[in-house]
């Protein structure tokens, strides 16, 4: 994995230097922005593969940068790097659409591992699925590329998390996929959200795709373990 384009948004010159040097050493292409507004401009223009975003920034804080990008429909992966590492800030960052959160000071190897994990996830998301582009479940079908579902002639847009969960299951049809595996592949970090969140996603997917959500024909719960898809 190399050649991906990363944007580091950090107003502390030293941190920006040492972080970007180390990321370049891994073979990634790195550009640095020192404040909120110029970060927004740079990300819009260069369409990077990942943004490492500080929260306390001159001009516009990192949360606002993330919020603005998401509101514009930009789903570039974002890794928050910040001195504010309270649980509240962490949750705020992830709720606003951040992909991961690393509190300062952090370990160099951990930073690189997390960046790699996010890039791997994005690559998986962008690559063609081994289950094909379209998943058919009886009358319903889901397009993995356009995130569009067609149910009894109605078309509706699924969220990327919903599509990825389905894809995770569809790539191993008939096999049990554990909740932690889904968390790891779709979210990529351990503490948030809880495995309970996946259950909620599954309930919603069943309501959309199953003829009878109470007696699922396609998406089965394997008690205590995870889920199994039988197309």
């Amino acid at each position: 994995m190399s050649g991906e384009r990363l944007v580091v948004v950090e107003d502390e010159a030293h941190l920006a230097e040492v972080v970007s040097d180390n990321l370049r050493l891994e073979g990634w292409e790195v550009t640095v922005a020192g404040d909120g507004p110029s970060a927004l401009a740079l990300i819009r223009k260069s369409q990077p593969d990942l943004v490492l975003l500080d929260v306390m920034l001159p001009g516009l804080d990192g949360f606002a940068v993330c919020q603005t990008l998401r509101a514009e429909g930009n789903d570039v992966p974002i890794l928050f790097l910040t001195a504010k590492s309270g649980q509240g800030d962490r949750l705020q960052g992830l709720e606003l659409g951040g992909d991961d959160y690393l509190g300062k000071p952090f370990d160099l190897r951990e930073l690189i591992l997390r960046v790699r994990a996010i890039l791997r996830r994005t690559e998986w998301m962008r690559s063609p699925s081994s289950a094909g582009d379209v998943l058919r479940l009886g009358e319903a079908s889901v397009d993995f590329r356009s995130h569009e579902a067609s149910i009894e002639g109605r078309r509706l847009q699924l969220s990327s998390k919903e599509v990825l969960i389905l894809r995770c299951l569809a790539e191993r049809p008939g096999e049990v996929v554990s909740r932690t595996e889904i968390l790891d592949r779709v979210w990529g970090y351990d503490a948030f959200p809880t495995t309970r969140t996946i259950d909620n996603f599954i309930v919603r997917l069943r309501r959309l795709l199953e003829p009878d959500a109470r007696n699922p024909r396609y998406i089965h719960t394997v008690r205590g373990t995870g889920y199994r898809l039988t197309p």
Partner: peptide, 12 residues
Amino acid sequence: SPVASARLYLES
């Protein structure tokens, strides 16, 4: 912030 950058410099 300075702890984070000093640590990264030294780790590198």
